[in-house]
Design a protein around this nucleic acid. Structure first.
Lengths: 344, 344
DNA sequence: CATTAGCACTCGACCTTCAAGAGTGCTAAC
DNA sequence: GTTAGCACTCTTGAAGGTCGAGTGCTAATG
């Protein structure tokens, strides 16, 4: 559909625009080393590319900038993703394997590294607690009528929640229940807890525990509530350095979106494996319809565990970023796999 | 030093400027109901007030705006702080006492409420874990060579840290040590832990534990490390709505400061009781030298526990904000006192 | 003698005009 | 098919002009 020359010109225009953020003119292109055509020829080709929807003008006599369709084509066909993988791969590997052993630390560090390497905003979703397994539960009483419930997973993740104990229930009863839970629920995936709780634990407890129904409700509230998804965000202010953020209103809407963690989490939750690129309008959320979002998934054991994402202007260094995310998601999967092997 | 009339005019100018963010002219003032003087008279007074350093001009023929000295005087002398306390006090009280019992939840909610009520950015520091007392420690092994250390305070605060167990130490040894710690350290203020650890625990453990020195180091690393101070920030993007943030560079520097939580924490740590106001240059950190910071402390039991702060433009609604912080810090102290009574 | 009216003056905000420069589209020549 | 040439378009920035808000000063006033 596109001729060789058109491909070349499209690529050069997008590369140039990504670098400079300025519209690209025919003369500038014709002067490049790998372009043996005159400016007039380029102009003709650019007119065709514009007609096909790959390029746009900011005004009638400006140079061309890529359209979203142009970026899409670029990402799908013009990127050779594994160009400079080696060098950066090593950097990441080095940091990730350097004696870090705390799950959440690995993730947080990755987010920061990512935003630093790219100068965009990085978002890492997860680790999804639901994929992990219960290691142990615990109730520690603080006073006659309050206690804190603690839940530890096999990944070393700790969730805790304070709650008040109704007067008529004895602390010793809670202890009994905790023992039963530790006995029966060890190794059960967190996501299966409620189900297992209802089907199995409830009937056992009913036999042993006085005033079972009241206690049961408290227990459920303490241990089975929805745990908030954890978001790790790096370089929130990086994106402000991009020239497209010279508009105060854009900044406002960007930051008010970033405050809504739940929305972001939903945005990132994806089922696909591998890397996905959302360019401008392709995004589902209005607030980032003029940005690009690139997501990759990382794994732990079998189930998908979480998502790494980068948010930047549509004029993003797709080549570099995609390569980087590819590497990082693999590195994280690997690092977490080692962790998992030790702790699963 | 200042005449009655000058005081009145100063107050009117600042009130007006706080409301509108526009320089205030003599004619506008003379038209107000409580001002029986002509514009010319006002002009003379304004010239005097400017000479004394309370007012400034943006250019030779503009209206006046308050200088930082002007704000300082306004805050120190022209505010009657407890004007509309009653109404808002009730709102806060209502929310704070509405069945909330989780310490950190109280704080987080207060931060959000505060930023919502004021449209500025609220920052709450603490609760300082150091003022609280140890309730219980716990080590849960995840695998043959990793474990998670959990520490619970009397406030229901839970700290945890993963660490790896050296091969030569048996898990049972750690268990013994944990038992000793729970025995001896229950009720000890967190801040005194290291001291108590060295003076008392070490010698006891040495008697009972094989290969004490190695284990001891791991234990120290797991339980005695500096716990990061927790910051609760509300309405980060509120401040963007202020007209003084129409400058992209200001936004950049503000947000890059807000990413450095440690710096913020240091900024807020204060020994004073009660409310403190830092106007513009009075702030110690460059990034907020054109903003105002208002801090108040809240308490738990005896020791000071933390700081509530509001960050906004120097053109801040000091009257409202100071009243509000006053109330909120009292409410929080009260709410936390009730919590403490139940859990201390 | 403090207060005020009057007036010349200043400055920012906004608009228009103008020239320069970058870039295009089209036509005609190669 | 490719390219040189040229008229045309549009942005950008500088220069100039007007308007309005507001000041400082002077002289008149109660």
């Amino acid at each position: 559909m596109l001729t060789e020359r058109q491909l070349l010109i499209l690529q050069v225009i997008i590369d140039d625009f990504i670098e400079t953020a300025h519209p690209v003119g025919s003369r500038a292109i014709s002067k490049k080393d790998n372009i043996p055509f005159s400016a007039a020829t380029i102009r003709n080709e650019m007119a065709d590319l514009e007609e096909m929807g790959f390029l746009e003008k900011t005004h009638t006599s400006s140079g061309r900038i890529p359209s979203e369709k142009g970026y899409r084509y670029y990402v799908d066909h013009l990127i050779s993703p594994f160009s400079n993988q080696q060098r950066k791969g090593n950097v990441i590997k080095h940091v990730l394997q350097d004696g870090v052993f705390e799950f959440e630390q690995i993730v947080q560090m990755s987010a920061e590294m990512l935003s630093e390497l790219t100068n965009y905003t990085s978002i890492i979703l997860g680790p999804e607690i639901y994929e992990t397994k219960l290691k142990q539960v615990q109730i520690i009483t603080l006073s006659s009528n309050t206690a804190v419930a603690i839940l530890v997973t096999n990944t070393g993740h700790v969730e805790h929640r304070s709650f008040s104990i109704p007067k008529k229930i004895k602390a010793s009863e809670f202890e009994k229940m905790v023992n039963i839970m530790n006995d029966r629920l060890h190794g059960v995936p967190i996501v299966k807890l409620p189900e297992k709780f209802n089907s199995e634990i409830a009937s056992i407890m009913r036999k042993y525990i006085e005033d079972f129904d009241t206690s049961y409700n408290y227990l459920k509230a303490a241990f089975l509530a929805d745990y908030p998804v954890k978001l790790y965000i790096g370089g929130k202010s990086n994106i402000l350095m991009q020239p497209e953020f010279n508009d105060v209103d854009k900044i406002r809407s960007f930051y008010s979106m970033m405050e809504n963690e739940e929305e972001i989490a939903n945005l990132l939750k994806q089922n696909h494996d591998g890397i996905e690129v959302f360019i401008g309008q392709e995004n589902k959320v209005d607030a980032i319809k003029d940005l690009s979002l690139i997501t990759a998934s990382y794994h732990l054991g079998e189930g998908q565990l979480g998502t790494i994402a980068l948010l930047g202007p549509t004029r993003m260094e797709y080549r570099k970023v995609i390569t980087l995310l590819n590497i990082l998601s693999n590195e994280m999967t690997e690092a977490l796999y080692m962790w998992y092997k030790n702790n699963g």
